[in-house]
């Protein structure tokens, strides 16, 4: 009986010790981070962005650069562009980095977003199985979509209201096609990486941003079939959530971030990002 009690007590003591040890360690790291700028308080900046900027690894390079030069701690929330924009309209984020120009304009018009600046672009590509059962290789994008629909080809859609999904829907719409009428059309409701994996597994066609595709190419049995069309341009904008409409927004930090994204030095980093690993840039500078 005694042994048991001693053992239980020592277990509890150990747990408590661990808890205090961890709280100490966080205090230490926190104070270490704050030391150089002890006078000012480090403020949190919530950046709502698309999965492609995180999954490609670009933000892992840019965010530390920004944090170093500003007195801000960036909380990156990588979600679909639809959700990121919604966080903007609700004032739940301070700054947005997204790629759905038409929907972004709506936010600017409604006064939820201000200071919208063009940052970079890459392009969307249509990828599919290497043997290309529908035979769309080299077609124009509209033609290819029409052919895929007519053939009832397996087409995997994001279906998550993301920038890529919006782009895909725009293309269907401009050709007056209801993609759901095709029995081979499926929506994953997931991010780009997962959707590419589903497409590879089901030997389906899928529209993707080039960055995510290049980053995952080696895992996927999918090839680029349609590219280079003007319709397939993928443009990223950065914008602040309007502090006049949403009073809890950290607007100084947001403004700094917008400036940071379009300054020359950052643009150079964006241009060089991924060149070494993939042999080509994943994003191209594209300021106004």
């Amino acid at each position: 009986m005694k042994l048991k009690q001693i053992f239980s007590l020592s277990m509890i003591a150990m747990l408590i010790f661990m808890m205090t040890a961890c709280s100490n360690s966080t205090d230490e790291t926190a104070s270490k981070q704050e030391q150089p700028k002890a006078a000012e308080e480090v403020k949190d900046l919530i950046l709502a962005t698309t999965t492609s900027t995180q999954d490609s690894g670009l933000l892992d390079v840019l965010i530390p650069m920004f944090e170093e030069e500003s007195n801000t701690n960036v909380k990156t929330i990588a979600v679909g562009t639809g959700q990121a924009l919604e966080m903007g309209t609700k004032g739940e984020a301070d700054v947005l980095l997204v790629h759905a120009p038409a929907s972004e304009q709506e936010l600017v018009d409604s006064g939820d977003a201000v200071n919208r600046k063009r940052v970079m672009y890459n392009d969307f590509i249509l990828v599919g199985p290497a043997n290309d059962p529908a035979g769309i290789k080299g077609m124009e994008v509209g033609e290819a979509f029409q052919k895929l629909f007519n053939d009832g080809a397996v087409f995997i859609s994001r279906g998550d209201d993301s920038g890529t999904h919006k782009k895909e829907l725009d293309i269907w719409k401009s050709h007056e096609i209801t993609p759901g009428d095709n029995a081979g059309y499926a929506e994953t409701g997931q991010g780009m990486g997962n959707t590419l994996q589903v497409a590879a597994e089901k030997q389906g066609y899928v529209i993707t941003d080039r960055a995510t595709y290049l980053a995952q190419k080696e895992n996927l049995d999918l090839e680029i079939l349609v590219e280079g069309d003007e319709d397939l341009l993928n443009i990223y904008h950065v914008m602040q959530v309007n502090p006049e409409k949403h009073d809890k927004v950290y607007s100084e930090g947001a403004e700094e971030f917008v400036e940071f994204m379009i300054n020359e030095e950052t643009q150079k980093v964006i241009e060089e990002f991924g060149q070494e690993e993939y042999g080509e840039p994943l994003f191209f500078p594209y300021t106004e």
């Binding site: 999965t51 995180q54 999954d55 997931q190 991010g191 780009m192 990486g193 997962n194 590419l196 994996q197 980053a215 995952q216 895992n219 996927l220």
Partner: peptide
């Protein structure tokens, strides 16, 4: 996250 990046 690593699964969605394809880093199995």
């Amino acid at each position: 996250m690593e699964v969605s990046k394809g880093n199995f």
